[in-house]
């Protein structure tokens, strides 16, 4: 089976106003299997966004190769176009890309560009709307009448409707309230569970990423600083702080409890998991699950 995305020796440089060259991504090697759920974390300006813009060929690498589903996307115009549909990229604040008269038409924009039949388009729009919790009545509204959270969902639906093999989300929950955040992350999780597609999420929020990802990639200064399972990455909390990141707060709490001699494990990354363990301990049972 071919890999979903395979990146070899990717370097991206650009010239800033003035003359000096900036290396945004330098010599990155990355291989993403089909069906993986990956979190990309890194501080602001670490090069995460530049890196993901290479996944669907929005940016052309200065050097190196990007291979999606076994084909080099820069081989010709056709492969590049296919990459756009195979890898669905959803940018930060995607609601600012809404433009159609109705939500329905906006979600249909991607599938329409794929030159699908009207029936197929209809089917995909409804499916995407269902995944993102957009009701039938909302589909007929103008996207500009929706609330902030609804707009976000509509925009994400626009990417999901293309049925991409890989979906890349850049800070999908940025600027949402805690409830909106939680339900959006749940939605992405549910989407992944039912379709089995590859999900790549970029975020600053360690709690969010801990709930979704199985593998974490830490980017620092345009390079991959660390690539491993959630356990491997979050066990190196000192390094994470040095890279401008941190472990989830709940993990810190449990590490301290553990060090104080309480009967709890260290590797706890989500509040839900923490609550389960604590309630078991309080009932008198063993904390170690």
């Amino acid at each position: 089976m071919s890999k979903a995305i395979e990146i070899t020796n990717l370097t991206h440089k650009y010239t800033q106003s003035g003359a000096q060259e900036v290396v945004a991504v330098s010599d990155v090697n990355l291989s993403i299997e089909k069906g993986e759920s990956i979190g990309i974390i890194g501080h602001t300006g670490s090069g995460k966004s530049t890196l993901i813009s290479h996944f669907n060929g929005l940016l052309k690498p200065t050097s190196g190769d990007v291979v999606v589903d076994g084909t080099n996307i820069w081989a010709d115009k056709e492969t590049l176009r296919n990459a756009r549909f195979k890898v669905g990229l959803c940018f930060q604040y995607p609601e600012y890309q809404l433009f159609e008269e109705t939500v329905y038409k906006d979600i249909a924009f991607g599938p329409k560009n794929m030159k699908l039949s009207p029936e197929e388009i209809d089917e995909r729009v409804l499916r995407a709307a269902e995944f993102t919790g957009i009701s039938k009545s909302m589909l007929e509204k103008s996207p500009f009448e929706l609330s902030g959270g609804e707009k976000r969902r509509a925009a994400i639906a626009g990417v999901i409707a293309m049925n991409p093999e890989v979906i890349v989300l850049d800070e999908p929950a940025a600027g949402l309230d805690p409830a909106g955040r939680k339900s959006l992350i749940d939605m992405i999780k549910a989407y992944r569970d039912s379709t089995g597609s590859t999900v790549i999420m970029v975020t600053h929020n360690m709690e969010d990423i801990a709930r979704i990802a199985e593998r974490l990639i830490v980017i620092n200064r345009g390079k991959i600083a660390l690539d491993g399972t959630v356990d491997e990455v979050f066990s190196r909390s000192d390094d994470l702080v040095q890279w401008g990141l941190k472990v989830p707060e709940i993990t810190e709490v449990f590490t301290r409890l553990h060090n104080m001699g309480c009967n709890v494990p260290r590797g706890v990354y989500t509040v839900d998991e923490g609550v389960k363990i604590l309630s078991r301990v309080m009932r008198g049972g063993a904390g170690l699950g």
């Binding site: 813009s53 929005l58 756009r84 669905g88 990229l89 995607p94 600012y96 924009f109 991607g110 560009n113």
Partner: peptide, 16 residues
Amino acid sequence: EETDRIISAQKSRGAD
């Protein structure tokens, strides 16, 4: 900057 961002987003949805 905004134009660049929107162009990228629409290109990601297959806009030609």
